[in-house]
Amino acid sequence: MDIRQFARGTVEWPRIERVVRTLADRYGREEVRVEFLEADNWLSTPCVVDEEWFVKIVSRQNALVHALLTTGRNVGAFSSGTEGFFDRFATPREMVEHEYEATRRMREIGVNAPRPIEAFEVNGLGVLVLEYLPAFRTFDDLADREVRARAPDLFEMLATMHAHGLAHGDLRAENILVCDGELYVIDATSVHEDRVDETTAYDLACALAVLEPRIGAREAVGAAAAVYDPETLLSARTFLDFVRLRPDHEFDSTQLRSEVEKAADLSGG
């Protein structure tokens, strides 16, 4: 068996049918049309319902994989010289309730995110319902020139989150969307709320890692430096090697570190 298939697991069809029936009942519809997405997602079974709702179905195996990933991330944080700051979830319901609440809070402070509708449990499965964004592109889908134009908006969005004590914790190109000309963010993970400095630095390091392969280290750091102070930029440098070890980030950490140090020196940091 493919290790990805094993890690993700498969939700039995009768349990999925029960979730679908529950959704139809909750929203007063005799039946609903469900389209399952072909996404390499280890943490849920994603689908679109009636082209109106984006639904994540989270199993116990998904929760277990999340716990294992969280342990690995905390070890990586420790290797960067700080205690781990990623939270884990005990149940599928906790996973969907966290994402619901994180999405609600981001929208509350003015950060674009899909409208959260509800989170609940069906037969041991966590179910998250969000509004469906039908015509979006991820950062991976954008041409380099558009990534360059959007870079300041990305750092402004992160700075808004950080100013309100929030953090994303899993910023990747596929978690940054463009819809109707606006940036959206999705899939925030759970981090310790009392570790604002570390989580801010980690988010910033992840954003630089997303941008460097597309627009180069100098422009990526320049966009960050227009929003963040030199001390925060330098703190992000601490996490670059940790982020580089993640399979979903490929970038030149040496160039980024050099540009961060230059920007801090020019700013008197």
Rank of each mutant, 00 (worst) to 15 (best):
C179L: 11
R257S: 15
S235G: 06
V178K: 00
L166D: 00
L245G: 08
K262R: 15
L211R: 01
T200Q: 08
D194A: 11
A236L: 02
V260F: 11
A167N: 05
D194R: 07
D180N: 05
R237D: 15
H249C: 08
H249F: 15
E212F: 08
A143H: 09
E219A: 14
T200F: 11
L208S: 05
V196M: 07
G222Y: 03
V196N: 00
E219W: 08
S235V: 06
Q255E: 15
A149M: 05
L154I: 03
D197Y: 09
P213G: 11
V191I: 09
E182W: 07
R218L: 11
G222C: 02
L208M: 11
L154Q: 01
F242Q: 00
R246P: 02
A225R: 00
T200R: 09
E259M: 07
L183K: 00
A223W: 08
A173N: 08
S190D: 13
L166S: 00
V191D: 00
D203M: 07
P213C: 12
R195E: 13
H249E: 08
A201I: 10
P230A: 07
R172A: 15
D229M: 03
D197L: 10
G169N: 11
L158S: 02
V196D: 04
S258P: 00
L234S: 12
D252E: 11
E174F: 11
A201C: 08
D229Q: 06
R214S: 03
A225M: 02
A217L: 13
R150W: 15
Q255L: 15
T160Y: 03
P213V: 14
M161A: 09
R244V: 11
E212G: 04
E261M: 07
L166N: 00
D229E: 13
E261C: 05
A201K: 01
P230W: 09
V243G: 03
D180C: 00
A173P: 04
L154Y: 02
A226F: 09
G169D: 13
A151T: 02
E231G: 10
L245E: 09
M161F: 12
R246Y: 13
E231Q: 10
E231F: 11
L234V: 14
T254A: 15
C179R: 07
T138Y: 01
H168S: 07
E146K: 01
Y184A: 04
R237C: 11
A223S: 13
G181T: 03
G169S: 13
A201G: 08
S235N: 08
D194E: 13
E261R: 01
A224S: 04
R195D: 10
H192P: 00
E193L: 10
H168I: 12
A236Y: 02
G169P: 11
V210M: 14
A163W: 12
K262T: 15
C206W: 01
G216Y: 03
A173E: 15
V221C: 04
E198N: 07
D265A: 14
R145P: 02
D141G: 06
L240Y: 04
I176R: 00
E174K: 00
V178G: 01
A225G: 04
N175A: 10
A220S: 14
L208G: 04
T238W: 10
E219D: 14
R214N: 04
F239Y: 15
T200H: 08
L233P: 04
